[in-house]
Nucleic acid binder design. Structure first.
Lengths: 204, 204
DNA sequence: GATAACTCGTACACAGGTGTTCAAGTTTGG
DNA sequence: CCAAACTTGAACACCTGTGTACGAGTTATC
């Protein structure tokens, strides 16, 4: 879509749409491998001239922005399939299962965005996926299975950060990919649990 | 110290030692503010000519390496004062108290290092501080207050990653600096706790 | 099939960084 | 005090990336 002077949207030609899709896809791919990927690299992957990229995106920053938005949008589709009902702890486990690989794949992209976009923009882009988790955490609190002595925003962030950590560990060959989800769930569930007893020493 | 042909070390002149110290200090400061700080910026902060920097460090990468090593070394000094005896949970709380601010201050430096140094080198530089935490975690396990169903390396990493998350939150003005330590401790202690009971539903 | 939209390569101007060389000064240490 | 060590700015060669301009060719669309 192109904004015209009157604010109407003039439909792009089919080949332009194809180009844009290819560029977006390529940007996600390239930036996911290397957060500092240049416009040239992206254009090459997209099978398009560098100039064409600038024809659709005013500058590199806007392209990175669009790429992150695109990746998140795609991710949300697969997250829509997750059953979030029932025991919040089991639901959270399922959500982690689906989420963490997305986080893994796009953590380099995120880094690219962080070095070019203002933090506020990054937040805005993540608002929708974050809300999904937040809602679940709140339900878990209401049902008494998640702690209430820390803000939900903090808890959501902790989950995010543990997933990132797992991604790093895999990347460093210190963790097997198929173990990650289990580790993350075990850690996050414990972190989310209400304090059982002030000091539960068996004896000693 | 300079390595001579015979492998002896010839003492540097006093002014050279001063320069090196100033450069190192400036590098830590500059890279802690901006991970992409140029050699020029660092030289300016050090109050030294850019050429002088190259006189002591063959290239930017080596300088970043030295800066990180220097920062970690400094950090360890303040960590040496922490009392790690007594209840492992309380000891861990104390350790978090002292550690997290160090992590906060130098997370930008770390990012600089990550984009220039191989992961293995980053690990090596962190070996000594990591071992400190690891030892404490192991003691906690032996005494039955920390969980044993996850590797200690993983637990140590989780603690690290939660501290980083707190730093990010403060940076985004979503968390007050004086609350951070409390949040981190509350989160990490819960994450480290042994599983109380498979499913401890109060009722419902 | 004509016209507007789109693409492409080349080329350019520009900015910023790295690492080296040099010649001239300053400081240190024996 | 003097030779060696050190520092310095300026200049240079080099590279990589960004964003713009242009002209010629291709493709969609009505």
């Amino acid at each position: 879509m192109v904004e015209t002077a009157q604010g109407k949207t003039a439909a792009r030609r089919a080949d332009a749409q194809r180009s844009i899709a290819a560029i977006l896809q390529a940007a996600v791919e390239a930036l996911s491998r290397n957060p500092e990927a240049s416009v040239s690299e992206i254009a090459k992957i997209a099978g398009v001239g560098r100039v064409t990229v600038y024809g659709h995106f005013p500058n590199r920053g806007d392209l990175v922005d669009a790429a992150l938005a695109h990746a998140i949008e795609q991710g949300e589709v697969s997250l829509d399939d997750v059953d979030l009902t029932g025991d919040p702890r089991e639901a959270l486990t399922r959500l982690i299962d689906s989420s963490w690989q997305l986080v893994d794949r796009s953590r380099s992209l995120l880094q690219a965005a962080q070095s070019v976009l203002p933090p506020s923009r990054i937040r805005a882009l993540h608002a929708s996926p974050a809300e999904r988790v937040q809602k679940l955490v709140e339900r878990g609190r209401d049902e008494g299975v998640f702690r209430t002595d820390l803000p939900t925003e903090w808890l959501v962030g902790v989950m995010h950060s543990v997933m990132h950590h797992a991604a790093d560990e895999i990347n460093a060959d210190r963790l097997a990919a198929d173990q990650a989800a289990g580790y993350i769930a075990a850690t996050v569930l414990a972190a989310f649990s209400p304090i059982s007893s002030p000091s539960a020493e068996p004896r000693s």
